[in-house]
Design a protein around this nucleic acid. Sequence first.
DNA 1: TTGGGG
Length: 478
Amino acid sequence: MNTCGNLIQLRDAIDLQNHKVNLLGVVVGFSVPRKSKGTDYVSVLKIIDESHQSPDFSVNIFAENLDDLPHVKSAGDLVQLSCVMMKVHNGEVYAVFNKFSSSFALFEGKSCKDLCPYQASSGYCIRGLDEGFIIRLRTWHLNFQLDAGTSAYLLSLKEIKAGGYFDLICKVLLVCEVSKDVWMLFVWDGTDTQPLDFQMKLEDEAHNPLPLQIESSLPRDILGTFPCVGTILRVIADQAYEKLGLHFQGSGQWVRLRNITCQVCSGLWRGVLVPSSKIQLLSNEDNIVAERQREFNKRISTKCGRVPLVNFPCPSPITGISFSVVSEIAFQSTLTDYEHVPFVTLMDLLTYSEVTAKFKCVVRVVAVYPWRAEDFRSPIGLREYRIRLTLEDPTARIHAFVYAEDGVKFFEGYPPIDVLTSKRNKLLGMTENLNSKEDEDAPRNPPWVECCIKSYYLDKSSRWESRHYRIFGTRHVA
DNA sequence: TTGGGG
């Protein structure tokens, strides 16, 4: 048991540099436990109490084992710290937790009545006197609204750009180990990331096809728990982070990811949690969280809510076609037979409850296989169209086939190769008149097009596993 | 010892 005296308030502790103190605070943020540059693991907790709410007060916690560091569950949880040393760095007072002489305990916050910690370091022992402090701090925090605050670094998913560091206020949908020792967060804020240019060569699709997602695919039952509108950003964690899944145990937690960065990988956005990133847990009542949710509810309550945000609600910058309601939406290069069917997202399609179904989506064609128009039809037999398109919207990517009579409709018969090539180029957002090999390899920016997609299966005994998608009822008119 | 936001 640690006996450095009674619990004291942060305001009083700040005057006790180079003394050991006992503290109790509300956790408002933390750095995700990771390997330190020394021999231990480290996590920095940011805490506040009645006497000191701003700026955050830091507690540096070191431990030999990752599991021995605090794993904060929710916004507003309480931490009790015994025998931590008060120090100062660059004029800022902070506390250091010594793995041999200090101890900590984490308690649920706010409305919880339980006085048992959900995690405690070895050597921790609660005293009757401390219980009163815990009850008092919970009561105070009930009526205290701490906001994530704003800053120039704060972006939403629709604003992110590659490179540079920024903060993101988002909901953590899932944390999982996507491959051995590689952890990934799946986060969402209700907006769509911007469509990207594609640098890769068309012919690469044969040997090195564009991936459909960054991770190897998730089981359909997990995918089905995700929102169908708005981009789900994959955030890969630096290798310094081990067992990231110990955190964010309650999925659906809103957080502010501080100082993260972003890369583009195979034409997909990918966030990166770097060693200097921080997590700030937010309550659902946080101002910006509420604003994100309001914006999202406003979006999905409109007829265009499931159309990519970049096309909403104004004329699309890419197609240049103006529209106000879904029935009037027309995309420059395609027409469908199902004018009054509402648009859905590719996530709607992926997570739909039936194997066979029909959908209408607004997508970009980001790759085609085979890539040469002269190979769009089978060389033998009936010489039918058989093409695999890679389609994407802000929510997902899929392969969709253009087959036989659907191909005849799509390409309006069997046009000459040069016309077919021109149609392909337009669909893929390539330079209009290709004069050289360089033009063919120039970055392409596919336009948004509308298309009807049906899902079907190849094998009756494994319908879901053999589910495929096909374009139908769609004409390429450009 | 290690961290310490930009």
